[in-house]
């Protein structure tokens, strides 16, 4: 029955041709009052279509529409490690009709490492944190290394000789390798690619010896790799046989947290309305099982807890970056 959407686009185009326009003109202007929301909400993904943030949002859309009673439109505004979308959001109208995906650590790192990222982390109000993608470290299936300890020992004896593929500079993967180097006193060569897919390609082709990858990529390609460690606090449900970094004596977690955010001065009741909607959608058992199959870990942080979490991450990350001389 969802198939009727296609004829609907066709109908819309025809309707446009037949000129129903003046009406649309008036409709767009009116109806601002009343309880939020009264019209479609734009859900901006600061990364490319087809990526993990996008897929998660596509899953949420139906539930959000049910909860909020209006259309939710997913748009993509990729660029500058997310900063393009976040700076646009920070400058935009604080009416709750434009919300954006919120990826940690990216949203925290961008303003730290750049003089002018176009927004400050404080310009944005976190609404809800729904999911974490743990980051894991893996080597090829035919690699001589079987444990993290073996890899670290080798790297310690041969500083800079071990190449690790990852996605982006000043990204979650980059931060993870910096923390691992710092805590283990080793030196790896981090080879950043322009995204998760090219990073996986470099690794699967044998061009790098190890890879830092998101859990969903680890799950997808697990037959062709040995996963040595994962950046969760406890064992990760989708890969229960993989030990954590913490278990193996490196006290850090690594992951990409995904949530949703609005401009800082958005009215309180609107923030709460969105928070409630996202909470309901995130707790939907069908959504949870879809996310877990794909290799994500669920989170249920509301606006206040999320704000605290971001503040903590901000402190942590700036400390790490400063100590490692990246700032």
């Amino acid at each position: 029955m969802r198939m009727q959407r296609m004829p609907r686009i066709a109908a819309l185009i025809i309707a446009g041709a037949v000129m129903v326009l003046p009406m649309a003109l008036f409709a767009a202007g009116g109806a601002e009052q009343g309880s939020f929301p009264t019209r479609a909400i734009n859900y901006v993904i600061p990364f490319d279509a087809g990526g993990q943030s996008d897929i998660t949002a596509q899953y949420q859309r139906e539930g959000l529409e049910r909860e909020l009673g209006v259309d939710v439109v997913i748009r993509h505004q990729a660029g500058a490690g997310g900063a393009l979308a976040w700076s646009a959001l920070a400058r935009g109208r604080a009416d709750g009709y434009t919300i954006a995906g919120n990826n940690i650590p990216h949203i925290v790192i961008q303003p730290l490492v750049r003089d002018n990222a176009g927004y400050r982390t404080e310009d944005l109000r976190p609404v809800y944190l729904f999911q974490t993608t743990p980051i894991g470290l893996a080597v090829a299936a035919n690699s001589p290394f079987n444990t993290l300890a073996e890899l670290i020992d080798h790297a310690r004896a041969n500083p800079g000789r071990v190449t690790v593929s990852g996605s982006g500079t000043h990204s979650g993967h980059h931060l993870a390798i910096l923390q691992l180097q710092y805590l283990s006193g080793t030196e790896f060569t981090y080879v950043p690619a322009s995204g998760a897919a090219p990073s996986v390609t470099n690794f699967l082709g044998g061009h790098t010896q190890a890879i830092l990858a998101n859990s969903d990529d680890l799950v997808q390609h697990r037959e062709s790799m040995k996963i040595l460690a994962i950046g969760t606090e406890a064992r990760f449900h989708a890969l229960p046989e993989v030990p954590t970094f913490m278990e193996q004596g490196y006290d850090f977690t690594a992951g990409i947290d995904r949530g949703v955010t609005v401009p800082a001065n958005t009215p309180e009741d609107i923030v709460r309305r969105l928070e409630r909607a996202f909470d309901a959608v995130t707790r939907d058992p069908a959504f949870v099982s879809q996310m877990e199959v794909m290799g994500f870990e669920m989170q249920y942080l509301g606006a206040d807890a999320f704000a605290e979490y971001i503040a903590r991450k901000q402190r942590e990350i700036s400390t790490v970056l400063r100590e490692l001389g990246e700032l």
């Binding site: 686009i9 819309l12 446009g16 000129m19 326009l21 748009r75």
Partner: peptide, 15 residues
């Protein structure tokens, strides 16, 4: 112009 703007705004959801 109106036709294109409508198609983009409504059908393609370009803001």
């Amino acid at each position: 112009v109106t036709m294109f703007v409508l198609v983009f705004r409504i059908a393609l959801r370009v803001p």
